[in-house]
Design a protein around this nucleic acid. Structure first.
Lengths: 110, 110
DNA sequence: TGTCTATTTGGCTATATTGCCAAATAGACA
DNA sequence: TGTCTATTTGGCAATATAGCCAAATAGACA
């Protein structure tokens, strides 16, 4: 892998890595619906505020969300809704896996 | 986050995490073009064979690739080509980020 | 100005990931 | 059977990630 290629793959990986966490997936899904402040997301996730704040900073750092201060809170919003399209594919993978498991079980019962 | 939801998000995250690595992104991209054996991929990536083998096992474990032994080698192939559609979105994020950076630079020069 | 609220940061520990080397394994083929 | 090749596994060290607590910060609003 040449240096140039490596840089490109690393940049892509960084974005994808930012998505690859249960809590951050929830955040992305919720922000696609509507913008939310840290407190609201914290309640939904059920973790420490500081933890959620750090998750948001990961997402922001990857360029996936935008933040805007309004009144006393900071509202986060999804910058690239196209990400949700990706979830369809992930779901496809998961159900293909489930199907494969099922077939293995069938073979066992024979 | 309820237990049920959590399980779902964890399953999704596992799949996405499997994609989120420079070398594995290269592998996915190459396998989308054509199936390849470990040796070929190892040369392309330029890492230890064992390292590449482990990357492949991560992908396989997530249900993203399939493997088939033929002759002396094991050929890996992409099980869910829809993943490549995702890359378009990642690219969009990256260029949006670049654009944002550019605008910041402009403000600095004023 | 002072207080109160929302959010971020620092520090820490526990856990997970990565990548290499060496060794084990599996199976093709003479 | 024996050898040779391709791949996987185990072990280890370095690094990164996640989550909590406590403390710092920023700014709204009386």
């Amino acid at each position: 892998m040449k240096k140039r290629e490596k840089t490109v793959y690393e940049a892509r990986a960084k974005v994808i890595k930012a998505i690859a966490h249960p809590s951050r997936l929830l955040i992305i899904e919720e922000l696609q619906r509507q913008e939310r402040c840290v407190n609201e997301l914290t309640e939904m996730i059920g973790a420490d505020t500081s933890t959620v704040s750090k998750h948001l900073s990961v997402l922001k750092n990857a360029g996936l969300v935008a933040d805007e201060k309004r009144g006393n809170s900071i509202f986060y919003s999804l910058r690239c809704p196209c990400i949700m399209g990706f979830m369809g594919c992930v779901e496809e993978v998961l159900s293909a896996n489930a199907e494969a498991q099922k077939n293995i079980m069938k073979l066992c019962k024979r």
